[in-house]
Design a protein around this nucleic acid. Structure first.
Lengths: 245, 245
DNA sequence: TCGACTTTGTGCCAACGTTCACAAGCGGCT
DNA sequence: AGCCGCTTGTGAACGTTGGCACAAAGTCGA
């Protein structure tokens, strides 16, 4: 059997892993790496489940989808499991990422160490603002968004990170799709429309806070008197929202 | 009926709104604000659903939980709906937020305009590093984490944002819980353990990329030849992960 | 070798979320 | 006033996810 066939078959197994499971695998992986660093060779589903903050039956079911088997009566081999999850997530190869928008958030993302350590390489920083082009940032030079096709072709970029204002996000997204990028991580507070073959994941800071606000309000209601809310506060402020970050 | 009774009743209605619905309400709200800015007075569930990127039946069911009724044959009044969702999410009051950790990401969050525009006020910036304390940042002075109790008491902080390295996150989290903060937004790549009455939401940038990586890999498998992956790449890199951002 | 103990893998079911499809209700037109 | 077309609100079907509980399968000690 050729390497290529073997690789294709291993990938084929991934097709029946549910989204919910996929979202948890990186959490397991992080916990496993911590265990490996601590020198632990094997781990039970119960122990790992506690580290990852999930139910142990769910954990076992998730892992069973990988085809990576544990040993009954013993548990899972930490190294084998790390390898297995990394394989499933595609972390055994390096991915090149293009980051578009080097404003406030873009700066922070460019310097975020958690990317490189997991096999994601920021191949380019891009921005539409000519004043920003040429700027040096974490050892990289900011290039103009118009150079996107060359950048993507040269570095084999398949993931784009959008950290622009919402007003520019759809245009940037279209350009990314145009040049063949099929995975997009969107930090702009807006809905992106893309073809079916393109995956978009959204990270929206203000939505997270609004969700917390909902629960906070609910808790205040339960304890009787609304905490930290003066009665006149309700209903007398305007609801205007800026469209960009 | 007193104002307080009315408020309590309105809040009481929130208890049977599912998490999935709550997570979508901010998206609807954003779309509605855009419509309001464009001068549109009413909107149909179909139109709003397209703007928000969801199924229209789901949208209607979500809105029905609010008790805010549309008009059959016409649609929803944009202003009424904005008011209704804002009320449900607790956005009619201002929330004070404490941001802990003014590193790379903390800087970006401190300057993020999307918070203030939705009623979230950053009441304080805190850090454990004495070298950072005193630093001026977006018009605020960074204070030491030990001042947390005073800050929370003085400003009525009920939401904490953790933007520290993972190694410090649990300790910071414990301190927040200690002084009565009951909602936490965690950017550190780790699992936090908190009492039942505390809500935690997690934003993990590298997990998002790993999920994209999974799907990217799957797509590459479907198209036959794995794109942008040299055969020798698989399996010959180490899986070490830095624990902090 | 055998039995006791531990832990995995999974069948089953309940809870939850999504989508379809349509009756009920409302405005506008004649 | 009465009819027509449009849109909401929701009952019911469907698919997905989560969790219990237990048989299967392994280790370890005697």
């Amino acid at each position: 059997m050729s390497d290529q066939r073997a690789a294709a078959e291993a990938r084929g197994r991934n097709r029946d892993i549910s989204d919910a499971t996929v979202a948890r695998l990186p959490v397991y992986l992080r916990a496993l790496n911590a265990l490996a660093d601590a020198g632990q060779a094997t781990v039970s589903s119960d122990e790992l489940a506690v580290s990852a903050g999930v139910n142990s039956a769910k954990l076992r079911k998730d892992l069973s989808h990988l085809g990576s088997y544990g040993t009954r009566g013993v548990g899972y081999d930490v190294a084998v499991l790390v390898e297995s999850i990394s394989q499933a997530l595609g972390l055994t190869q390096r991915w090149s990422v293009a980051l578009i928008g080097v404003g406030n958030l873009g700066h922070a993302l460019a310097g975020y160490g958690g990317f490189a350590s997991r096999g994601f390489r920021i191949a380019a920083l891009l921005d539409a603002d000519p004043a920003r082009v040429g700027e040096q940032l974490h050892g990289m030079v900011v290039r103009h968004i118009d150079e996107l096709p060359e950048v993507v072709a040269a570095d084999g970029v398949s993931i784009g990170v959008i950290a622009t204002p919402a007003s520019a996000a759809q245009d940037v997204c279209d350009r990314l799709v145009e040049v063949g990028v099929t995975s997009i991580l969107n930090f702009a507070p807006c809905v992106l429309s893309v073809p079916d073959n393109v995956d978009v994941r959204k990270v929206d800071l203000s939505i997270e806070l609004q969700i917390l606000s909902f629960h906070e309000r609910r808790k205040a209601a339960l304890t009787g008197l609304p905490a930290r809310m003066s009665p006149g506060d309700a209903g007398d402020r305007e609801y205007g929202q800026a469209v960009g970050p």
